[in-house]
Design a protein around this nucleic acid. Sequence first.
DNA 1: AATAGCATTCAAAGCGATTTCAAATTTTGA
DNA 2: TCAAAATTTGAAATCGCTTTGAATGCTATT
Lengths: 338, 338
Amino acid sequence: MRLKDLAEHLGLSQTTVSRALNGYPEVNEATRLRVVETAKRLGYRPNASALRLATGRSGAIGMVLRGSYEFGPHTSEFLGGIGERLADEEIDILLTTVESFEDEVAAYRRGAASQKVDAFILHSPTLHDERAELLLDLKVPFVLHGRTNIGKPVAWLDIDNTGAIERATSHLLDLGHRRIALLNGIKGRTFAEHREIGYLAALSARGVSFDPALMGNSVFTDEIAFRMTQAMLELRPRPTAFLAGSMMTALGIFRAIRQAGLELGKDVSMIAHDDVFPYLNADNMYPSMSTTRSSMRQAGTRMAELILQILAGKPIEDVHELWPVELVLRESSGPAPQ
Amino acid sequence: MRLKDLAEHLGLSQTTVSRALNGYPEVNEATRLRVVETAKRLGYRPNASALRLATGRSGAIGMVLRGSYEFGPHTSEFLGGIGERLADEEIDILLTTVESFEDEVAAYRRGAASQKVDAFILHSPTLHDERAELLLDLKVPFVLHGRTNIGKPVAWLDIDNTGAIERATSHLLDLGHRRIALLNGIKGRTFAEHREIGYLAALSARGVSFDPALMGNSVFTDEIAFRMTQAMLELRPRPTAFLAGSMMTALGIFRAIRQAGLELGKDVSMIAHDDVFPYLNADNMYPSMSTTRSSMRQAGTRMAELILQILAGKPIEDVHELWPVELVLRESSGPAPQ
DNA sequence: AATAGCATTCAAAGCGATTTCAAATTTTGA
DNA sequence: TCAAAATTTGAAATCGCTTTGAATGCTATT
């Protein structure tokens, strides 16, 4: 069922039918009703490709993901959040999977040149993000989840990682901990660097010296966290507190602590960063987990909103949001053992 | 940079340039090289919408997800698997988010009518899946992850849920357990029904009577599993073994067991279904977790492959795959206490 | 009654690719 | 050497929509 068919069926021109369906004013109200009603009855839907070709808009927002490890729980929550906002808009998410960083850059280039998407959502930036520069060059609208330093204005939404970790660290210091381990994300990623800054700031504010052996950088899996924690617990004096970069990390740390015969919240404390997974609740863990909390899903929803605003013409200079992060104290963090 | 521009730049017709780029045989080798080289140098990429309109293919595979709860860890693994296979093909995944079941059906209808995607991946089917019927009616290619009973041939890939749970249950019975709880998925979903069948079959094969109080149906979150387990552990005689529908469920069950002062693998046994999450390894849990294991990611990859085959013309009657499920015994399952 | 103005409608020209069909050129074979 | 065949190129139609600019019919005004 094409527009042409529908027009013939109605005894009208394509022009009029198109206008009627798209709500243009210069069409008789009676005609409009007849058109809309018939279109609905016959189940007419404009061909997406034709529509896109004619309007220049693609009706999709793009995201490029590294297949091997970027499809994690964070990503699905983030996508869910984006989707929640986009559901009303009849705009879809176009996922492109790639294997390497080079492929990723190429994917943005392709996506831009072929106009598959109206805008991109860029995530997990590095301190100086090449992809952001590329998209700026190509003049493709995008919003960055996180921040980067490329000397040009970029639309972004980020959480206050520095502040969050600084407060968490300070709290642990208040509790008497002096050997505080940080299991952080991959070096070079802005969020990880920001967290490190907060960590170091809190330590130096109390004159506690920084021990590189107490810091680890890696992707957030329970396995790597387990191994790192095992190794750190061998140190003497051993760490009495852990800062976990994610809930997955927290599970690994927790496991290592138990395996070492130690008790979480008593012998060793932990504060984890919680992206708020509906299927893994910090409050319901045993012992319940102290966290720095910020909902990934909410971020996604807001990111979608920001993209829509940008597509509607809002200047990117006005699109910057820094979200505060809650510190939620529960049982996993307690006074340092004597 | 349009095809037209490129053609003018080269002093050739659009026809020839198009042919050269698409590898048609009737173009001079020297010309082809010149065209390809220039296209590359100038960064030419065909406009996706125009290409789609002209060819009728959209270059994307669609998936519809309920925003509220279908973006879970299973989904991201599955998407990751699909993406892995699609990465080489320059085919993308088009995600449509919806809020209700009605919206979902409408989304398939829209997607089909507007030809946004070349095919759909259908997931989490019910015993008699309306969406599958719709897509068959609309003649849109699709592959089903799971199975459904609609009396017409459908392409599908499923794991042997019945066999897996039957074996797991039998094994627990062998270990002397008689009160075995099943924390299953939502009623009506084929996979959950299949698991129930396996469970009941194993019980009745040993003449163990089924106690409805030992069966729970819900989405797989640690919280709900925790509550259900708490309630079940109050029963007298209480269950001595649990079958967990997912690793998330397993975490909840584990928590409830610990909170009740019981020891997993000794006082209470558990076998969980493991979709193989890279960030949550059954082998690395403490105690390590016995599982029925089947990689969600691999399923996704294979689903993508099957879709490609169907789009290449393979008859859907020939696309049925039932994957066996491994039973991996570890520390969480032991002999029933006396 | 003639004209201006308004409300509706339509034919046709795009959007940027592919593809059909025809034309031009070169090669081959007798 | 010349016709036939093969190779290579191009003009124009096509995909299904939007949108421009023109045309139509009707009402209102003088």
